[in-house]
Amino acid sequence: MAVGKEIRNQISSVKSTQKITSAMQMVAASKMRKAQERMSQGKPYAEKIRAVVSHLANATPEYHHLYLKDRDVKRVGYIVVSTDRGLCGGLNVNLFKKTLADMKTWADQEVEVDICAVGQKAISFFKSYGGNVVAAVSGLGEEPSAHELIGSIKVMLDAYDEGKIDRLYVVYNEFVTTMTQQAELHQLLPLKASGEEELQHHWDYIYEPDAKALLDGLLTRFIESQVYQGVVENAACEQAARMIAMKAATDNAGEMINELQLVYNKARQAAITQEISEIVSGAAAV
């Protein structure tokens, strides 16, 4: 029957799109579980090293490490952790919005901004938006390895050492639940003392072998571990957000198919009715 051919085509094309989105949803769900596992494995280390470093910031050391000193802010650095691929809802957009809002407050104080972009989306976003991207890394995949990150982190740390930037932030999505991901901005450098008030008296560690080498190593490790944790967490967010986005797309496709099916049935019904009435009126005329 000639009637509704176009609608039938449309239905079948929506159906095949739905198949793709539902497959992507399932893939994202299984990847999310793995990413979540990776995230929770790294958490104890990240938390402990954060505790150690905040103890350190509370101490009154004889040796003042560069990373612990507050400087006048002339230039700030951001490490922006995004995903490599799209189709994950508003995840990256929210992240960039948060970053830009924060950058604007600096821009108002005439502070310049350097960016280290992690992930393809951040790279292309800052390319089109404009921004001084000093380091970029992408293609980390589902199992980000710390090695690949170290290079670009080092660019930012070197810039800090040389006094090119006076603050360093990291921005990434925090995994709250499967349904919610929250864009978070943390200050990495200089390190902020934790609010624990129990250690008010003056004290310092005994350092072995010597304070400088030890703190250099420890603080670099701390920054790396925080950024790495951010990347891993962002990866879990990506899969969760994609799963939700694809579930919504699958549901929408289902609705669309139902609507189109209704339109198609109506058209078919109308065509049949018309044919019958033509036959009847033809028979009556005979």
Partner: peptide, 18 residues
């Protein structure tokens, strides 16, 4: 530790070592 084995008992002074 970097500069030799060390034992930490409760009440040890604050210390940091590689």
């Amino acid at each position: 530790g970097e500069s030799g084995d060390l034992g930490i008992a409760p009440g040890h002074a604050a210390l940091m070592t590689s």
